[in-house]
């Protein structure tokens, strides 16, 4: 059973993939999709009531399609632009998910997206507050949200979320 933060993250992720990259995030992966590696990755760090990081990992076979759908066929052949396109997907997912989770009054500053496919998957002690994954085209995608802060800051975030009171019992946000 997904938690509320995961549900909000899925909503932001699915709408971004659909409206920005014209790709559908399927909740379940087929065998073929599940076998595809998550070998392309970007992250966006953010600062505000809490600080954190959102990572988007996709199968690299999806990169030309994402770039083509966002920028046109000609631009899609250039690898740096493919990476920039995935970075913009991460930026928009992050920008849409944070107000849903932290509430509409919270102001966040987002850093520029960063290519992280060559970095270790997780830093020591990091555990995601929410993870969303699913099949996309012939590959798959995974989005992780990391939140860093004191227990008080995280609790304040928990009680200020836009949909927290309407969609989840108290205490189930994370």
């Amino acid at each position: 059973m997904p938690t509320t933060t995961a549900q909000l993250l899925r909503r932001a992720t699915a709408s971004t993939f659909e409206d920005l990259a014209f790709l559908f995030l399927e909740p379940e992966c087929s065998e073929e999709q599940a076998a595809a590696p998550l070998d392309a990755a970007v992250s966006v760090d953010f600062h505000g009531p809490v600080r954190g990081r959102l990572t988007v990992r996709v199968s690299s076979m999806l990169m030309p399609t994402i770039a083509a759908n966002m920028l046109g066929e000609e631009q899609a052949r250039q690898v740096p632009l493919q990476r920039d396109a995935l970075g913009e997907v991460a930026n928009v997912v992050c920008g849409n998910a944070l107000p849903m989770i932290a509430g509409a009054d919270a102001v966040f500053r987002l850093d520029a997206p960063r290519w992280i496919a060559d970095e270790p998957r997780a830093r020591d002690g990091d555990a995601p507050a929410a993870t969303v994954s699913g099949g996309v085209d012939d590959g798959r995608a995974e989005v992780e949200l990391f939140l860093f802060g004191t227990p008080e800051q995280l609790h304040a975030l928990q009680t200020s979320g836009a949909d927290a009171t309407s969609t989840a019992p108290a205490g189930s946000i994370f």
């Binding site: 971004t16 920005l20 849409n96 509409a104 987002l110």
Partner: peptide
């Protein structure tokens, strides 16, 4: 044209006479 979701900030921008289009947009 932004992902900005803070109602406080959006209200400030609208008070300065700007229209808002939220990313992603059709």
């Amino acid at each position: 044209v932004s992902t900005e979701g803070s109602e406080t900030r959006l209200a400030t921008l609208q008070s300065l006479g700007a229209a808002i289009v939220h990313k992603p947009f059709p």
